[in-house]
Design a protein around this nucleic acid. Sequence first.
DNA 1: TTTTGTTGTGAGACCGGTCTCAAACACGAG
DNA 2: CTCGTGTTTGAGACCGGTCTCACAACAAAA
Lengths: 358, 358
Amino acid sequence: MKRPPKVSSITVSDVAREAKVSKATAARVLGGYGRVSQSVHAAVLEAAKALGYRPNELARSMTTGRSGSIGVVVGDIENPFFSLAVRGISDVARLSGINVILANSGEEVEAEKSAIRVLLAKQVDGLIVTPAQAGDIAHLREISCPLALLDRALPELDVDTVTVDDRDAALRATRLLTQAGHRRIAYVTAAVLSGDFRGAASRINTSTVRERILGFLEACREADIENAERNIHFGSSRSERSHALLLQMLRSADRPTAILASDSVVALDLFKAIRECGLGIPRDISLVTFHDADWTSVTTPPITVIDQPVYALGKSAAELLIRRLKGDDRPPESIVLPTTIIERMSVGAPLRLPDDQS
Amino acid sequence: MKRPPKVSSITVSDVAREAKVSKATAARVLGGYGRVSQSVHAAVLEAAKALGYRPNELARSMTTGRSGSIGVVVGDIENPFFSLAVRGISDVARLSGINVILANSGEEVEAEKSAIRVLLAKQVDGLIVTPAQAGDIAHLREISCPLALLDRALPELDVDTVTVDDRDAALRATRLLTQAGHRRIAYVTAAVLSGDFRGAASRINTSTVRERILGFLEACREADIENAERNIHFGSSRSERSHALLLQMLRSADRPTAILASDSVVALDLFKAIRECGLGIPRDISLVTFHDADWTSVTTPPITVIDQPVYALGKSAAELLIRRLKGDDRPPESIVLPTTIIERMSVGAPLRLPDDQS
DNA sequence: TTTTGTTGTGAGACCGGTCTCAAACACGAG
DNA sequence: CTCGTGTTTGAGACCGGTCTCACAACAAAA
């Protein structure tokens, strides 16, 4: 049959033969373990250099059981939020000599499952996951290595978790809007709701999504806004269909006078849609979004944002995970990072009076 | 149900014992090779399921010599250009059941070398690299597996390469500026120049950088602009220092009236700097950039850009590489993808007359 | 009936490392 | 000079798969 082009690489045995020592001794030098006399040590190193020895990490991992790498599964690498978090993870990992295998779930559970399976089969020492859907987490339960959750907590899963204070952030951001006089406020999120929602916010079990909605609703309640749930829009994605839906919302008679977006990708799409409809920010509509993406400061007007410590999010998750890899076994920790609101120019008073139901 | 702390994973031998067949037979079923009778096949599968068998990809790779994964080394995952290219690569890889190990070089050769060493040690089957510096490519020469270059060609390295028509793109973009009447045009790039430059464009051996400069200079020559080299700014990065340098350039007496930026990150920084200086686009200064990043269409004014087929860039590179992994051994190919210019509102006539040397 | 395939199965080598164990050796003390 | 302790070293098992090879069982051909 077809044999792979046998690029006979140099192994410890080859080096041992060249250095005229046993395989075990050569391995000790090359692997940096055990004790070897100075002279032999030098001889082996020289032989290795002469032959151009390169260790086979795979073989090493096989016996040690450790692969020296962790797997990271995020929803969408293209989202600057994740890119930045991944940098935080990578930077920490590099310091510990651990490398990162990145996988994209596209926010789909099936892809996530598959990615985790592959990563696990590759014997990653640990896993950092941003779970796509909270309803389907059996595959996360079955993970046999340390696991850390990034950005999204799963109450049913007792593992290390790093999130931001989503509820408070949403609360404060929404207050900004209610205090400006808005009463028809929409929350637009990329999250997909599994099953029915209608007033059962507590049943949503992806923390990020739930907490934000709870914060949003709380602010609405404070302002005596009824039926605020009605204005929560799920499943906004980078697609034509989703964009059309936004346009429809913006063109409806009772369009919102203010919108809170769940991430910068959604916000950008909203920004474009608002423009397309010939609406002005903040004159006709106010906009606030999660994530201080770099573009938000250069639009006209610049967008008021909830600044999340994204890099720190990734960094902390990696630190937690790596600490655990090193043998720490205290009970799972949940870190909640604070957010701040950066007020720019995208929030104004509503054009029509609050009680105008046109 | 609680799992025993012992993570001793299930191996083929365990399954074999459970199914009462030999290890070899169980392996045949589990590995999907060789011939096995229907009845035994079913029995093994059942035993595997009962025990919860998970193959150890590492062990498998060790004997086959194939790891089923490719390594990708990019300059900066945070740059949307690379995120998108990586998506192109991932999508193609997934279709072939190959997975991607991503590494970040931060555009530093040493980090690149280290990343490549690690990936090679992990026995990746192939490598896609965006070389950080063209001067230092010995480590790329030594790579023993198929290699494909992404976005940046290396004339001294005869391997599969996918780039865009940088020279032509720069030429056309610069013409846009000269035809609008500009004569003091700057080209700002993130690339770091090793050694001296001064008129020796042909000596720059990173294709992307060289070709763009050649295109830029050609357009300047067509317009009889002298000393255009003087206005090429290297090493612009996401740093304070670099930002200060831009401000300095914009505040100088003979500041450029038009700028061409090498990527969207640089362009965004420029955009902010221009604002900070109280200059208006395109009234005081015109701006064109490589890469149709999503924010470029929402600024005021929206930015005229060179639209590169970034996704296709990654896709093609992956296709080329995977084809080679499958045994194709025709001579290395160089694919050059076309670009288009999307004219928006950031180019105007210079405020002062062309020959005003104030 | 004997010969010749064909197919299914088991035994065991092998990949390239790590690591255990015991033998070989060095050296100071008794 | 012998003994005990400690250091180096080599032989070989092992990790969890793949794969070669030999052989048994059975079927078809001679």
